[in-house]
Design a binder for these strands. Structure first.
Length: 445
RNA sequence: CGGGGCGUAGCGCAGUCUGGUAGCGCAUCUGCUUUGGGAGCAGAGGGCCGGAGGUUCGAAUCCUCUCGCCCCGACCA
C-alpha cells in the first residue's frame, strides 16, 4: 500500500477523552473512531489488525478441531425465556422490539441459540464430541463503557460451545480450549496467563480466565513469577490425545496464578518470596465448563450408549477479539507509539522514501516494494512529499515492526537502512538484503 | 446507578465568574524557502459557541429543561 493513497487519519495531539495508552494510541494512529459511548468504527488500519487477530483465532480454533459457523446478532427473546436468563440478565442486555412488536435482543452471548441449534439436529452420542464456534459482534449495554475497545458496549468475540456425552469428555474439551488459547495468544506476541476464576453470570463449575499482564488491567492478579516464563513454543500438539492435552494444561496451571476474586493468601504465601508477584491484568479470554445448565432446561438431550436419554454436557469458551487489540497495545508500546508484534502487524514493513522525486530513491523504493510483495508481504510505502521527521513519527506511531529507510545519502553507497521498531537498532545493507532479512523474519510466523 | 467534570473551527484549548455579537496553537489551502526525527516566512478559508425555551435593547456568557461525552466508584468479557 502506498501511503499517499491510503486512508490513515493520524492525530498529532492526544484526544481529550482517551485516558489509557491503548485507547489514545488507537485514536492517534487512526485505527478507530468513536461513534457513541463504547461503540466504534474500525478505520482501515484498525480493521486490518482486527482481521489479523481474527484470522489467528480462526486458524487456531480449526487446528484444534473446532467448527466455525455464524449466528445472528439479533435473537428472539423467547429463546432466553427458556433458560431463564431473559429476566436474569438485567439492564446489560439490549432489548429491542421489531415492527410486529416481537421482543428481540442484541445478543450478549449465544448459549441459548447454540443449544437450540444442537437440540434441533443432534440426538445421539455417536455425533459427539462437537465443538461449534463463531466470531460475531456482541452487545452488552455497559453502564460505563471505557478504555476504548477494551470495554466497549459493542465488541467482537469468539465464542465456542462444546457438547459432550459426559463430564470427563467435556473436561477434555475444556483442556483443548485452554491449549488452543495459549497457542493463539502466543502467536499474537502476548503472554496470557490462565488463572482460576470465579464463574460470574454465565455460570460454571470450572473456569479459567486468561490475563495479559499490564499496569492498566482491570483485575488485580497474584502469581508466581515463574508462570510468566512458560511457553508452548512450536511443540507438536495432538488435540485428540486427552492425556497429552491435560498434561500441557497442568504445566500451565500448576503454578499459582489467580485474580483477586479467587485469591488465596495462604497458598500465595507458600511461594518463595522473590517469586511472589502482585500486578494487574487484562482479561482476554475465559473458558467454562457448566455441565447441563442450559441443556437441561432447554431439552438438549442425547441418547447415550446405554440407550438412556441424558442432557448433554456443555461448556462455553470465549476470546475477546476486539479487546485483544487494546491488550496487545497495552503490552507493547513506548512513548512514541505502538509496537506491533510480527504476528498481528497491519503491514509487515514500512518503506520510508526520504526524498520522493529523487530518481534513485524512487527507483529503490519501488524495487523494495515490489520484492516484498513478491514474497507475499505487505509493505506500507510512505511516498508522500513530507519531511523525514514526520514520516518517522507516523511510522513510529502506527508501530510497524520493521522500517526500511531509503535516501540519497545511503543510496550513494548502495545501501538502505533496516530499523527495528522495538529496539531502535539500525543496520545498513543493500535493498535486496533488507528484503531478504524481512522475509526471513516473517518466515516463521 | 451514586459522585464529579466537560460540550466553542477537523484536533487541543482560551473566552463564561463580571452579557456588548468569537480567539489562540496544530491541521487544511496558496506562494516562496527548506528537506535524515512532527520545518520557516507570508497570505487564505473554516465555527447559527451541543439543542430547545426563557431573561435582556443585546446571550458562548445569566436562568430552566434537554441531549451527548469523559473521570472516580459500584458493575462487567
Amino acid at each position: 500500500m502506498r501511503l499517499s493513497r491510503y486512508f490513515l487519519p493520524v492525530l498529532k495531539e492526544n484526544p481529550a477523552e482517551a485516558q489509557i495508552v491503548s485507547h489514545r494510541l488507537m485514536l492517534r494512529a487512526g485505527m478507530i473512531k468513536q461513534q457513541a459511548a463504547g461503540i466504534y468504527s474500525w478505520l482501515p488500519l484498525g480493521y486490518k489488525v482486527l482481521r489479523r487477530v481474527e484470522t489467528i483465532v480462526h486458524e487456531e480454533q480449526q487446528r484444534a478441531g473446532h467448527i466455525p459457523l455464524l449466528m445472528p446478532t439479533l435473537q428472539p427473546a423467547d429463546l432466553w425465556r427458556e433458560s431463564g436468563r431473559y429476566d436474569d440478565y438485567g439492564q446489560e442486555m439490549l432489548r429491542i422490539r421489531d415492527r410486529q412488536d416481537r421482543e428481540m435482543l442484541y445478543g450478549p452471548t449465544n448459549e441459548e441459540m447454540i443449544t437450540d441449534i444442537f437440540r434441533s439436529h443432534v440426538a445421539s452420542y455417536r455425533d459427539l464430541p462437537l465443538t461449534l464456534y463463531h466470531i460475531q459482534w456482541k452487545f452488552r449495554d455497559e453502564l460505563r463503557p471505557r478504555f476504548g475497545v477494551m470495554r466497549g458496549r459493542e465488541f467482537l468475540m469468539k465464542d465456542g460451545y462444546t457438547f459432550d456425552v459426559d463430564r470427563e469428555a467435556a473436561m477434555h474439551a475444556y483442556n483443548r480450549h485452554m491449549v488452543s488459547y495459549l497457542r493463539t495468544y502466543e502467536r499474537m506476541g502476548l503472554t496470557a496467563i490462565p488463572m482460576r476464576a470465579a464463574s460470574g453470570p454465565i455460570g460454571g463449575d470450572d473456569t479459567h480466565e486468561f490475563l495479559v499482564l499490564a499496569p492498566t488491567g482491570e483485575s488485580e492478579v497474584f502469581y508466581d513469577e515463574a508462570v510468566t516464563t512458560l511457553r508452548l513454543g512450536n511443540r507438536q500438539i495432538d488435540y485428540d490425545d486427552r492425556a497429552a492435552v491435560a498434561e500441557i494444561c497442568a504445566e500451565f496451571t500448576r503454578l499459582y496464578a489467580r485474580t483477586d476474586e479467587t485469591h488465596d493468601p495462604a497458598l500465595f504465601a507458600a511461594i518463595p518470596e522473590t517469586q511472589r508477584k502482585v500486578g494487574r491484568g487484562i482479561e482476554v479470554g475465559q473458558i467454562f465448563y457448566f455441565g447441563t445448565k442450559y441443556s437441561a432446561p432447554m431439552g438438549a438431550t442425547i441418547t447415550n450408549a446405554a440407550g438412556e436419554r441424558v442432557a448433554v454436557h456443555m461448556g462455553s469458551h470465549g476470546i475477546g477479539v476486539s479487546r485483544l487489540l487494546g491488550a496487545i497495545i497495552e503490552a507493547s508500546h513506548d512513548d512514541r507509539g505502538i509496537i506491533w508484534p510480527e504476528g498481528v502487524t497491519p503491514f509487515h514493513a514500512a518503506i520510508v522514501n526520504l526524498k520522493p522525486g529523487d530518481a534513485a530513491a524512487d527507483a529503490a523504493c519501488e524495487t523494495i516494494y515490489g520484492l516484498l510483495r513478491e514474497r507475499g508481504l505487505e509493505p506500507l510505502y510512505d511516498d508522500r512529499d513530507a519531511r523525514a521527521g514526520e514520516k518517522f513519527a507516523t511510522m513510529d506511531l502506527i508501530g510497524l515492526p520493521w522500517r526500511i529507510t531509503v535516501g540519497p545519502r545511503g543510496l550513494a553507497g548502495g545501501k538502505v537502512e533496516l530499523t527495528s521498531r522495538r529496539t531502535g537498532d539500525s543496520e545498513e545493507m543493500s535493498p535486496e538484503a533488507a528484503v531478504a532479512r524481512v522475509a526471513e523474519i516473517y518466515a516463521g510466523s
